[in-house]
């Protein structure tokens, strides 16, 4: 069995970038107005992944725990920032909440998977720790941003319903039950979808990567199952923790709403709106 890789040349990458150009062309033709964003996103992908490649080569070569931890800290920082970057509503402390969520999700799920399930030795082996935690953070990020957006929208648009419950003596947890439930449910959509169609519609990313790299399919499947469950946990942690954190900032312990702390951010793209 050929365990080797077909090497990709810069020319191959250039050809692949044609897909983005086609998508941008469609956007211009249909006046969707997303070509600028698409271009920037594509550029970011190239620059970020390029830099990552360079950094990973160094980190893998050095193999020191402090370097791995520093890299994880940087990943947590960026994932927290990105998780709230596109939120249409903000409150003071939103960034801190996102970072805390990411850190907890990263430590709990990442720790369990790398140290217990996979049993990485030495514990900081960057070849395992960094990609696994990268996946966890990426999924937490999805959970966080969807859950947060839904929670803030619900509290804002349906404050009268929350206050109706409060007016009859509901405790904070009782008044927040429905908004929290809606937020977590929304935050879990990507991973429940991914788990439902795994293997039927899509070959999940990690498995695809391993098979492309020449791993035996059953081994790739075993890893993918671990990864799916891990991602479900990180997605759920992200969705739940951020909803918990945000609701505690926007609703006082006695239940009164502190929605004056909430502000609407004007979308920097088209179709922006002001409150």
């Amino acid at each position: 069995m050929n365990a080797g890789l077909i090497q990709l040349s810069p020319l191959d990458l250039l050809v692949a970038s044609g897909f983005v150009v086609v998508a941008a062309g469609i956007s211009m033709g249909l006046k969707l107005g997303i070509e600028r964003r698409l271009g920037i996103a594509a550029l970011r992908t190239v620059v970020q992944l390029g830099l990552l490649g360079l950094v990973l080569e160094k980190v893998f070569a050095v193999r020191r725990p402090v370097v791995v931890l520093a890299m994880l800290a940087a990943m947590i920082f960026f994932s927290g920032r990105e998780a709230v970057a596109r939120s249409t509503r903000r409150y003071t402390g939103i960034g801190l909440d996102a970072w805390l969520t990411m850190t907890v999700s990263c430590l709990l799920v990442g720790g369990a998977v790398t140290q217990v399930v996979v049993g990485v030795r030495p514990w900081f082996d960057p070849q395992y720790v960094i990609p696994i935690l990268g996946m966890i953070l990426g999924n937490s990020l999805n959970g966080v941003s969807l859950s947060l957006e839904r929670l803030l929208e619900t509290l804002d648009a349906r404050r009268h319903e929350v206050e109706l419950l409060l007016a009859f003596g509901a405790a904070r947890a009782e008044a927040l039950r429905d908004p929290m439930r809606a937020a977590v449910r929304t935050g879990m959509i990507p991973i429940t979808n991914a788990m439902t169609v795994a293997g039927l519609v899509s070959l999940p990313g990690m498995m695809t990567g391993q098979i492309l790299a020449g791993a035996p399919p059953l081994q790739a499947v075993a890893y993918q199952i671990v990864v799916m469950f891990m991602l479900a946990a990180s997605n759920a942690f992200g969705a739940i923790l951020i909803a918990y954190g945000a609701s505690r900032r926007l609703v006082a312990p006695d239940g009164s709403l502190r929605l004056e702390r909430l502000r609407t951010v004007e979308d920097r793209g088209r179709g922006g709106r002001k409150r």
Binding site: H160, E161, A167, G169, A170
Partner: peptide, 23 residues
């Protein structure tokens, strides 16, 4: 006191102006 606001609300109950309903 402040910690007793939920029980207070259950005894001093507001019938709000816009008569909201729950889903």
């Amino acid at each position: 006191g402040l910690a007793d606001l939920p029980p207070w609300r259950s005894m001093v109950t507001l019938l709000a102006q816009d008569a909201p309903v729950l889903p």
